[in-house]
Design a protein around this nucleic acid. Sequence first.
DNA 1: AAAGATAGAGACAGGTCTGTATCATTTCAA
DNA 2: TTGAAATGATACAGACCTGTCTCTATCTTT
Lengths: 194, 194
Amino acid sequence: MTQSSPLSARDRILQTASRLFYREGLRATGIDRIIAESGVAKMSFYRSFASKNDLIAEFLRQRHAAWMQRFRTGVEAGLAIPGAGLEVMADVLEAWFREPDFRGCAFINTLVESGPGDGEEVAIARAHKAELETYVAEVAERLGMLEPASVAAMAMLIIEGAIVRAQMTGDPVVGGLCRILLAQLKAAEASSPP
Amino acid sequence: MTQSSPLSARDRILQTASRLFYREGLRATGIDRIIAESGVAKMSFYRSFASKNDLIAEFLRQRHAAWMQRFRTGVEAGLAIPGAGLEVMADVLEAWFREPDFRGCAFINTLVESGPGDGEEVAIARAHKAELETYVAEVAERLGMLEPASVAAMAMLIIEGAIVRAQMTGDPVVGGLCRILLAQLKAAEASSPP
DNA sequence: AAAGATAGAGACAGGTCTGTATCATTTCAA
DNA sequence: TTGAAATGATACAGACCTGTCTCTATCTTT
């Protein structure tokens, strides 16, 4: 196989597509630009991916894996500190919000861009959020919270709200608000038995 | 002026565009479809609007006014009940979530669809959220809350989170979660003096 | 070193989109 | 009733998009 760059053509395409799809959007990013910035011929692209939708799906799967791993790693590190609760998630999020190229959640953005049609992309986006909620519930249970499922549903609302507010305002202080709200979930549960 | 329909051509265009822009998205909705469903000629369209972007801006301004009025009316009605707090906002939102053609917040969707370019549409979207936050702060102050600005910032996070969760899951039960979280803002402030 | 596979570059077809121009018809006003 | 303006329908130009095809150069393998 021809290997002019350290990465394979497929990986270069995926890397370029990840950057452009997230920064500019799915529809706004054309194949021509992806192959130009990847230094790849069009036919080489279509030998690696059946269609643009295929590339989008692969981008989302890869981003899901990377995002979840980063989130899990950050949260587990925070939970190692005694007394830590769900609010450590806000710190992980805030670090993300502070990145200069932060532009919201790729999966929310995909849902919005895809419209009412329920394509594969939307399914991947929903699956991402479902897996995140499952993880949050698992952490809530590990923390000994009484109703992990309810807590996770509320935490998801807070997390998504923080992401969208960070995207809308561009102000990372949203992370602090998110932290307060997640901490309140603990306090509220302690004071209201089911 | 030619008046075959009860509404003027401009109003018919705006009505059709509002429906399609919200349901299908801004980019996914073409001028051809708007004029076809409005029963209007292309030149008549371009006599009323300078460009598609002009129509989008007008759609957003109109939707902003209508949405704010509806929200204000619902909240004020809820606040008339003694003892009511910010959580009445969740009831207004839940009624919205239950509409069959609910597809999230048009202004969040606009922000996502517009990408990194800061066009007029993005400015209108941000202005909408700013005005909403101002109103929430005003209500918080009226309710005698200690820090209306902080409360409004947190309420905005919760509100946006509820909207996105309702859009993502399609489950109106999100309204109930939103209600609990907004009510907690009151309880939390009462127990934590600045 | 020679032959075959693979790569990049670019032309091309077919589709969609925005915005303009044309033309016959209808509506309003004098 | 007659002339002027507005409307509907449609064709058109220019741009962009996806996906296919061709040609040449380079790399791999034998």
